[in-house]
Design a protein around this nucleic acid. Structure first.
Lengths: 235, 235
DNA sequence: CCAAAAGTGTTCAGACTACACCCATGG
DNA sequence: CCATGGGTGTAGTCTGAACACTTTTGG
């Protein structure tokens, strides 16, 4: 490190891939850009650090709260990585640190903190077009979705999509929708109940649907799934 | 994004977790710091972006070439993530993007590009002490090691530790040393030969050791292991 | 011939799949 | 009483762990 020369400094931003399951689809929270560049285009929510001293994790947590109106401390939030191509922002050099957030199905309107209108958009609607979103956000979104799909195989991440109390069928639908596969309800049921500390029965029952009432569960203390629930080849 | 205010800019660095297997141990490339802060302490190799316009991936690749003297294009190099705690560098705010590099056992001296003396150090020697390295580099190293261990389960990353031609026993020793487990040689042999496009026989044989000569292989085109080689419970 | 390492075959236990079957509700 | 979804049982198959055994070298 030749400390004698001038160290270049660049702007640092934080962007969020906020995923949820709504209307039987995997959806992502997007905002419409109000200013150039990419004015009018959809983009991931995010922003620059609010001060020279703000921690990047804190900035992500703050943005998540602002956009969803929820307490970020209770939601799943993990870093995806840094995206630092020199030309990714035409104005000036901006390095962004992307985060993946998983939230349960929210009441409906997001009611963002600032004027931007945040909206849920099905991931499949965006297709695989590389320029569906502003900047390199299509790439970041793809990385986030793949991370979520992968994590669900061997961690309890899927429960982050569910409300506090949920049925095993709810959990299975999360897997099916995020993975885009159908799973055998019977085998899935047995499998998740066999994983220690994954699900804790609340004792309550649902009565909504036309069938037999289902038992309600809440997340257990487990973080790692043993054995894993693997994609490809129905479970 | 309220673009009307002053956007804070901060210095961006790149740090490398360069791992190899030497002398039957997992070792990491470290440099001794010549200047404050942490003068005389061991740290991960790395440095600031060389210019305002250098890509972060290119910067990592450049640092790797400088430190190892090898063509980074042939080595495994992947991003670990961004580390941006505001107080991680006492001088000024520095956000670092950490990269994981896996290299085969090198001839011996590293012969770094600049004056710093790079040296291989067994990861176990550093223990789990949080302050064995300068800055937050102990944490970054731990994350890098865990990433490497995890990737070896379901990708062909282990071959990156091996020279161009290697035996199945060489590959198994990589797994054993990185994971700190012993694997059954017979089952391991059958398992890796069963994965399509993982290993390509060269037709050559070794004759070094006291036992039966082993066939030599080189990496195949596969990147993903199907089925995976899982830790915990001997294979 | 013996030690050592490579490589193959076989057995047993546990996990996954597929599907038959029963349970509990609403209409 | 039938449709719908929840939940359990079970047989066949597949995978992985353990280990006996053969092969091929060096000393």
């Amino acid at each position: 490190m030749n400390e004698g020369w001038q160290i270049p400094t660049i702007a640092v931003a934080v962007d969020l891939v906020v995923l949820t399951v709504r209307s039987e689809m995997l959806q992502v929270l997007l905002v419409e850009r109000g200013v150039e560049p990419y004015q009018g285009r959809l983009a991931l929510p995010g922003g620059f650090l609010s001060s020279e001293h703000e921690d990047i994790d804190s900035a992500a947590s703050r943005e998540l709260s602002e956009e969803t109106g929820l307490d970020a401390g209770r939601l799943h939030l993990e870093q995806l990585g840094a995206y630092g191509a020199p030309d990714r922002d035409p104005r000036q050099r901006v390095l962004t640190v992307a985060y993946l957030a998983i939230v349960p199905n929210l009441p409906e309107p997001i009611a963002g903190g600032d004027a931007r209108s945040a909206q849920w958009t099905p991931v499949t609607k965006l297709g695989r077009r590389r320029n569906a979103l502003a900047f390199d956000h299509s790439r970041i979104l793809a990385d986030g979705v793949e991370r979520a799909r992968h994590r669900m195989e061997y961690t309890t991440l899927a429960t982050a999509f569910c409300p506090a109390h949920f049925t095993i069928a709810d959990l299975r639908r999360v897997y099916e929708i995020v993975w885009g596969e159908t799973l055998d309800p019977r085998n899935f049921h047995r499998k998740v109940k066999g994983v220690a500390d994954f699900l804790v029965p609340t004792g309550e029952m649902t009565s909504k649907h036309g069938g037999r009432p289902a038992a309600l569960f809440r997340r257990g203390t487990a973080e790692i799934l043993h054995p894993a629930i693997l994609r490809g080849g129905a479970n």
